[in-house]
Design a protein around this nucleic acid. Sequence first.
DNA 1: TGAGGTAAAGGTATCAGATATCTTGGAGGA
DNA 2: TCCTCCAAGATATCTGATACCTTTACCTCA
Lengths: 256, 256
Amino acid sequence: MSKSVPARADQPTAAGAVAEHLAQMILGELTPGSSLPSEAALATRYAVSRLTIREAVKLLEGRGLLEIARGRKAVVREPDGAAFADFLTSIIRYDPKGLFDLVEIRLSLEVQSATLAAKRANRAGIAAIESELQGMRDTAGAPGQPMSDDQELSFHTHDVGFHEAVALASGNRILGFLFEAMAQPLREGFFISRRGHEKRGHTRHDTIEAHQRILDCIKAGNGRAAAEAMRLHIKDTERDIRVALSQLAHQPVEHS
Amino acid sequence: MSKSVPARADQPTAAGAVAEHLAQMILGELTPGSSLPSEAALATRYAVSRLTIREAVKLLEGRGLLEIARGRKAVVREPDGAAFADFLTSIIRYDPKGLFDLVEIRLSLEVQSATLAAKRANRAGIAAIESELQGMRDTAGAPGQPMSDDQELSFHTHDVGFHEAVALASGNRILGFLFEAMAQPLREGFFISRRGHEKRGHTRHDTIEAHQRILDCIKAGNGRAAAEAMRLHIKDTERDIRVALSQLAHQPVEHS
DNA sequence: TGAGGTAAAGGTATCAGATATCTTGGAGGA
DNA sequence: TCCTCCAAGATATCTGATACCTTTACCTCA
């Protein structure tokens, strides 16, 4: 008698229920790379219309569990930190204090990251870190010369890349993904912190030297020293941000 | 001549494009709690069918940016760490080493968490931590007595709650959300680590005492001592997991 | 025999039109 | 004043169809 399966008030929606069931299946049994049955097949199995299946699958795509392409079945996705990126972005946008919260998180994660990298980094991992540092040098230009916007973006990208490379070299996959997710918010943060950096009389070559010290400790396999070098560097960044933001706060009321 | 707007190969799908546009709007201008226009209105604005809007909105719901309820417009959601939970779960499920990676992350985050909580926790924050610890005591039962499954679940829930309460008391919102996201994977991990805990001759009352020490340091406002107490506790948990997993490794593994 | 092109089959993307149910707010009565 | 009930607006889902993409198997030609 009932052709449709409308959602009841006390029950989640049909699409949500299907999505939850599929999510359990994906997280439980299926491995990344394997594919789901076709939409039509799933519609038959769950006794709902194909549209409901589409909505369920879209939910899971949003959660980062599936990859959907036209003409192909939905594929279980390798986990990555993309889902976390939205969250960090919204935190920073909605909350002015968010940037300091992020620096505090970095302080603990990066120190751990450097410690582990010093213990475990293999040749490829160290080469990746060196490559990013070289990229910073290449785009830094001559001392005293102002940087173009392109150069600055490239410099920050290599800076973020350096920290991401250290995280990857730590051998801890979660750390790697966390830094991947932090990359975008971090780049935004670096544009801010650089103002403070200059205001405090430092140059980008000081930044490069700080990174060089961290790399040296990692290459030497000295976890404790690497941790300390990283801690000093992050603390310095925190001061940069504080100076830059306090300037921003004073600017609007200038000459009033 | 073209009534529909089919997706081009080199372009993202219509639903994806709408979702991306809405996401930028949500992260840029809208504040949590405000609501989107109705599906019909959005369909008109973007010149697509209502179905496409529904799929776009489902994508964003999956990303945790929107909350959708029947009969009401879609509402911009307060950011939370739910999106991160999927990721952690999949890491742990797909990768046997994932649990140790998670413990390493905890080691750095929880030490930071305890340090900050000792500095910043207000009365309400400390009361919340105390409440969870009391919850552990209440469900622990008499020494030597075996726990029922319900009791054990409750005990672990309060244990996780303790750590989450410390994170919240740190005043760092990102830390709070990270622990919220870790709660579920952590509970699973605790069921594993408890075996090792007992195997090593420890009881749940030892666990309670370890937590009590952490709480005392936080109440005393001694960040350094709180950090050290937390570090010892996490290191102990790591040993528990190692012992438990080495036991599991000797048991036959089922194939699918 | 092998290489390249092509058409069919299967899959997703999207549209259109309808019905069911829920939420909310206002009209009307006790 | 307060409660009840109904209508309007919103979402949830279904059915049926068309367009386009991907894969594969087949067929042709060198």
